[in-house]
């Protein structure tokens, strides 16, 4: 069957507007989701900053094995926290996906709406998580070195910190998008009737 349909035009500005409205309307829920991301990223950033500073301070043995463990664990915590937040956020909204499908939304439209929302939350959560985490990572070393010492070291390694900061945001974005894409894609594949009667 060919109905000879034109490509629909679902411009980026429309997508952003719809996603932004959803975040705004679900403000407190969005804040909770963002907090989940912030916590995960902050924990990871704090541990990474701490091990970097220990390295820079040239504690005799350099970075110790347990530091690698901690970094590994922090990545897992960030991963778990963020995926959990995002999975829940999508799961709560399967009915809404059903509504979008009933009024003519394509699966790809719907997934795009959710991904843009995840991106916005990921950037926000990554940014604040990185600031808080790096700040804490520096803070916990104040008993190991004086403020002056730390300042010198941090200034000397500023570019590394900047990379860490960007990496945190990047990881937040990747994790939130992935943890949104997979369930949103799956939910958008449901028939509208199935999606509408979905109970969390």
């Amino acid at each position: 069957m060919s109905l000879d349909l034109p490509e629909p035009d679902f411009s980026l500005s429309e997508v952003f507007y719809l996603s932004y409205s959803n975040i705004k309307r679900r403000f407190f829920r969005s804040i909770i989701t963002a907090l989940g991301i912030i916590l995960g990223i902050a924990f990871m950033a704090a541990l990474l900053t701490n091990s970097l500073i220990l390295d820079w301070l040239q504690t005799e043995s350099g970075v110790e094995a347990y530091q690698y463990w901690l970094v590994g664990i922090s990545l897992i915590v960030a991963f778990g926290g963020i995926t959990n937040s995002m999975l829940m956020a999508v799961n709560e909204r399967v009915k809404e996906i059903g509504v979008y499908k009933c009024i003519g939304g394509l699966d790809s439209h719907i997934v795009r709406l959710f991904i843009v929302e995840a991106l916005l939350l990921g950037i926000l959560g990554g940014f604040f998580g990185a600031i808080i985490g790096i700040g804490m990572g520096i803070g916990i070393n104040l008993n190991r070195a004086s403020l002056d010492e730390l300042t010198v070291i941090l200034e000397a390694n500023f570019s590394t910190l900047l990379i860490l900061f960007s990496a945190c945001i990047l990881i937040a974005i990747i994790l939130t998008s992935l943890a949104t894409y997979i369930p949103a894609r799956r939910a958008s594949k449901l028939s509208p009737a199935e999606a509408l009667r979905y109970e969390n």
Binding site: M1, L3, L5, K101, C102, I103, G104, G105, L106, D107, P192
Partner: peptide
């Protein structure tokens, strides 16, 4: 799927 969405729309 695309045509169905069009129909619903």
């Amino acid at each position: 799927a695309y045509e169905l969405a069009w129909l619903r729309n």
